[in-house]
Write a protein that binds this DNA or RNA. Structure first.
Lengths: 277, 277
DNA sequence: CGCATTCCTTGACAAAGATCAAACTGAATG
DNA sequence: CATTCAGTTTGATCTTTGTCAAGGAATGCG
């Protein structure tokens, strides 16, 4: 594995604080591998033998049942996935495929578990990572259950804007169909909903989103750090879509777990009207 | 705290394997508290100061946004909740309220984190618990995204049957409205859907469910261990509804964590019983 | 016991979302 | 530069699900 990649991995929240010797041991058992685009890396139901770390490219996590399929997350450098399955030594609940050519670091799950007992700092990192992944998934479920499709779209776009440092214009990082699937709707519905958002605060041209009337959008879907936020200390773990890039910076890539959201406020927890569900 | 309760707690997957001395220390900082029914224990957005262990009664985890509200889980003895928030020292993503009078053990999050570094076995338990909670939440999201309401209901009932040891008749453990909310639909829709399932494999009388035609149900919603199953080694963490009881055993209560279906027994005779409160 | 809640059910209706088919777009390719 | 192909958009239509309103059943309490 290349030095540079090693140091990137070493800087992951997951590996950052462990003892150098243990990191070295872990990495000796690991290996880095290149994959072409659109290749299935793992299938749901398989056993978890390796923790996966995306070093380059991007990987989609998805799930299917009875012919239906849904995107659960996209992981970009440097993010990890299927940590939970490795820890528990159980079958994956999701499948993974590359969206584009990618390089992935594979860390044997057995080494992972062994090192966990050896190195308290590593254990702390692992548990923090997992807790973050849990919270991300909880947010995902809340989003699906508490908002309708229109609101989820607005929430997503505002979140993307937030991740672009609050910019009013940014570029979607993934295909719309994939965003639609992630947000739990059909591509057609997503398209139509975007259409109706034109003139209500959003302008779209290709993959470029422009926020015209932020206030109106926030009225239509008040952001909530208990749904939209990333947690303050970003975790990888691949439970969200990647952040956007600003228009005209095509090759600049950040971690999907990346930037923390600012400027979002709590809602008053006391106002509870009859629920939607 | 009562001896008996302590030993129950000691037998939780989370505390079972830790060193006796550490368990004792943890429990010394902890305290047990009684709450009346329908009382809000924690509100989403609050800071996580204590890990909660339900010793008696039952607790609902729910979330709301803009007046809408949805049930995320119900925790019964002996199950834990909000572990992830404690680990990360971040605000809860969910609120919790008692459904009935309950007794809850409160373990200071700081003690939890300290003990984590001290005791590798405890660390292993924590991470296992969290990994399980993550997977449960992932299942929940998959269920919502890949199945329609009718299928989710069938899946739920088949799962409940499974938890009753495959019995064809069992009693719902929680109000239907709550099940409906958990499954991501309105109570009205739930009621109607159940109605149409009469004569298609299900018979309902009050809270008692009878499975008439299991094969038909499994055709309508093929069970999938990557959605419905509990993981082999059951975790608590409160990310599912509790298991049913067989008709005519009203007072027999099992752990919500015991989603793992059958045969989870407590009572491990080699026991330490730490002190006070 | 009867009243008051709370939960559950039902009906009529409206809205949201899915499906199917077809056309359009834009980038990659020969 | 035409072709191709995946992705996107659009329209028409249908299904699913939510909403509102009201009645019924069960339960707890005075």
């Amino acid at each position: 594995m290349r030095e540079e990649d090693l140091s990137e991995v070493r800087n992951l929240p997951l590996f950052r604080n462990m003892r150098a010797a243990n990191f070295q041991t872990l990495m000796q058992g690991a290996y880095s591998q290149r994959f072409p685009g659109r290749l299935e890396l793992i299938q749901q139901g398989q056993r978890a033998d390796f923790l996966h770390v995306v070093v380059e490219g991007s990987v989609e996590l998805y799930a299917d049942w009875q012919g239906a399929s849904t995107t659960m997350a996209v992981v970009r450098p440097v993010g990890t996935f299927i940590l939970a399955a490795c820890i528990r030594d159980l079958p994956y609940l999701m499948s993974a495929r590359t969206l584009e050519p990618a390089r992935v670091l594979l860390v044997p799950a057995s080494d992972l578990r062994a090192t966990f007992r050896e190195d308290p700092e590593f254990a702390v990192s692992i548990v923090g990572e997992l807790a973050g992944a849990f919270r991300s998934m909880a947010r995902h479920a809340k989003n699906l259950k508490l908002r309708n499709s229109r609101e989820r779209i607005i929430g997503y776009l505002l979140e993307q804007s937030e991740m672009s440092g609050g910019a009013d214009q940014f570029v979607l990082q993934v295909e719309k169909r994939l965003v639609a699937s992630y947000l739990g709707m059909t591509a057609e519905n997503f398209s139509r909903a975007l259409r109706t958002l034109e003139g209500e605060g959003i302008h779209m041209k290709g993959q470029t989103v422009t926020i015209i009337d932020r206030a109106a959008l926030m009225r239509a879907c008040p952001p909530d750090i208990l749904i939209d936020g990333p947690d303050p200390e970003p975790m990888s773990g691949g439970v969200s879509l990647p952040g956007p890039e600003l228009p005209g910076s095509r090759q600049e890539r950040r971690s999907a777990a990346g930037q923390g959201g600012v400027g979002q406020q709590f809602r008053d927890p006391n106002e509870t009207r009859p629920g939607r569900t």
